[in-house]
Simulated assay, not measured.
Amino acid sequence: MSFLMKSCKADHHLKKADSIRIGTLGYFRKHPDPEVGDDLEAALSTRVEIRSPSVFPSQVLTAILPQGIDFGDNAKILRRPHQMYLNHYHINKVVRGQVHIERYDCRYVTEGSDALIFCMTLVKDQASDPRLGYSSSWKMRRSSAERFGKKLLAELNGKFRDEPVYFLGEDHEENGVDPNAVSFTLHHAPVKYRARNVHLVDPSLTELRKLGHLLKNSDMVKTLNYVDQDEYRFCFRLLHKDTLVKLRSDLEHVDINASFFRRYTL
Rank of each mutant, 00 (worst) to 15 (best):
M1L: 09
S2L: 11
S2W: 10
F3S: 01
L4P: 01
K6P: 03
S7K: 01
H12Y: 11
H13N: 10
A17G: 04
R21Q: 12
I22S: 04
T24F: 03
T24H: 05
Y27E: 14
K30M: 08
P34R: 08
P34T: 08
G37Y: 03
D38E: 02
A43S: 11
S45D: 00
T46G: 00
I50K: 01
S58M: 12
V60C: 09
T62F: 06
L65Y: 03
I69E: 04
A75C: 07
K76A: 15
N87C: 13
H88P: 08
H90L: 15
N92Q: 15
G97D: 15
G97S: 12
Q98A: 14
H100N: 12
H100F: 15
Y104W: 12
T110E: 02
S113C: 10
M120V: 08
T121P: 02
D125Y: 09
S128P: 08
P130E: 07
S135A: 13
S137W: 04
R141M: 13
S143H: 11
S144T: 03
K150S: 14
E155V: 02
K159H: 11
R161D: 12
D162F: 10
Y166R: 08
Y166T: 04
Y166H: 07
F167D: 04
L168A: 06
G169R: 04
G169F: 02
E170D: 10
D171W: 06
E174K: 07
G176D: 14
G176S: 11
N180H: 13
V182E: 14
A189K: 08
A189F: 10
V191I: 11
V191F: 06
N197M: 05
V201Y: 08
D202W: 06
P203C: 04
L208K: 00
L208F: 01
G212T: 00
K216D: 13
N217G: 04
M220C: 09
T223N: 01
T223D: 01
D230F: 02
D230I: 00
F234V: 05
F236M: 12
L238G: 07
L239V: 11
V245K: 09
L247A: 02
L251I: 03
V254E: 05
I256K: 05
A258S: 14
